[in-house]
Design a protein around this nucleic acid. Structure first.
Lengths: 228, 228
DNA sequence: CCAAAAGTGTTCACGGTACACCCATGC
DNA sequence: GCATGGGTGTACCGTGAACACTTTTGG
């Protein structure tokens, strides 16, 4: 393990930013303004600087390239195949993030020519191996959603149980029984029932709820299972 | 994302190799023959070459530094804090591996002055942030063992249900009920019951079993849950 | 009054858990 | 014969899954 003087792989981060609205799950993509894959859609990301942690690099790129900050962010997987970038050897640490679509407009910045949300199940062809990275994030969402009440990161602060259920159905890729879902989710004891209802809907207005983070942390400490 | 000409972080892999025998879980460590942390125990690992995938680098280091090959190996997490190596900026992709202790003698090789198995719950002080990496592997084992019948990678090819149960108890950190354990594990239908028994034991000789990988794959395809 | 989603309980089957005694073997 | 782990079955309980109708609101 002598000092390393040879060519080294470059190191980047790439972020799979997932958002949700009533139409479904979306990913934030950026249209590349440079070769290779000029004009293709790609994940926001970029090189890791020597003086920042990899986590910080992910947050920075998210802010610079997509104009997003203060989002929930977690490391996903490191993609290190040899040919994944045609220019040179690049290893990328992929992250995934969840944001409230209502709160965030993605905006292109720096060297990205365009940024936009894309529906998760009708993605365009992506640059590099980014399709595989998105697939990994999707898989992680599917498994994580069963153990941690992640959904609240994606919904507006006040939401209906119907919205929450539709989100879970999207994430899990299957229909859930309405009564069982409400029963379980309310039994978790991490929702504040508000004295507010939807407005201007063409059907009975649903009650609004809010995620009770304090109760959630308490339950976590008590060793609680959030399986849905 | 122009061509990158500045200083770049170096990229390494580190492997948490877990082994098991009747005395408990062990991790393979190497005594460092170079500064920094000269003489300290550390995980086997090293730099990723430009012409090999990160996975390949992990396998190579495992072979070179610990003399291990053909082991079960999986990516664990990427550690990218800024100060984790005092010499220069180094990001490491951590892997974890499971081996049959009976089959593998670790042997020091290349630039490691010594290699040995250490009991997982009485580790010496480790170099760099390797203690955190081992802790992450341990946590991963604990959660993974519940979903995938991982234990078989760690046991000899023929084993008793008692051995399997003790392994699970080590991994999960709690005692399991013998009858329930046997019932569940046999119900999985992935064990071959052999017409062989232990020999030379000071008690009733236990029947030996073998992991039936074919049946396992079949169950996986059928969407089977291996929760214990 | 019609469409569309909200809201609400009960029953059944299965799996998890708790629990105690006899058996085979080596010393 | 004794110490040590191997081996076996049953009863209870809680949770997950299935399932249908009434209510409210806007158009």
């Amino acid at each position: 393990m002598a000092t390393y003087a040879h060519a080294r792989p470059a190191l980047t981060v790439d972020c799979v930013v997932l958002g949700y609205d009533d139409a479904g799950l979306k990913v934030a993509l950026i249209r590349r303004g440079l070769a290779p894959y000029l004009g293709r859609w790609a994940l926001p990301g970029g090189f890791v600087h020597v003086d920042e942690s990899v986590d910080d690099a992910a947050r920075r790129e998210l802010a610079e390239e997509a104009g997003l900050s203060r989002v929930w962010l977690e490391q996903l997987y490191t993609f290190g195949a040899v040919g994944r970038d045609p220019r040179e050897r690049v290893v990328t640490v992929a992250y995934w993030a969840l944001v409230r679509l209502a709160d965030h407009r993605v905006q292109a910045a720096t060297d990205a020519s365009e940024a936009a949300w894309h529906a998760l199940d009708e993605l365009p062809r992506l640059a590099f191996d980014h399709a595989a990275i998105v697939a990994a994030a999707r898989e992680r969402l599917r498994s994580k959603v069963r153990w941690q009440p992640i959904g609240f990161e994606l919904l507006p602060r006040k939401f209906t149980l119907g919205q929450l259920q539709r989100l879970y159905e999207m994430a899990l890729g299957r229909a859930l029984d309405k009564r069982n879902f409400r029963k379980k989710v309310l039994a978790l004891g991490i929702l504040d029932e508000l004295d507010e209802h939807e407005r201007n809907v063409a059907h009975r207005a649903a009650r609004l709820y809010r995620f009770d983070e304090t109760a959630y942390r308490q339950r976590l400490r008590d060793g609680f299972s959030f399986e849905l």
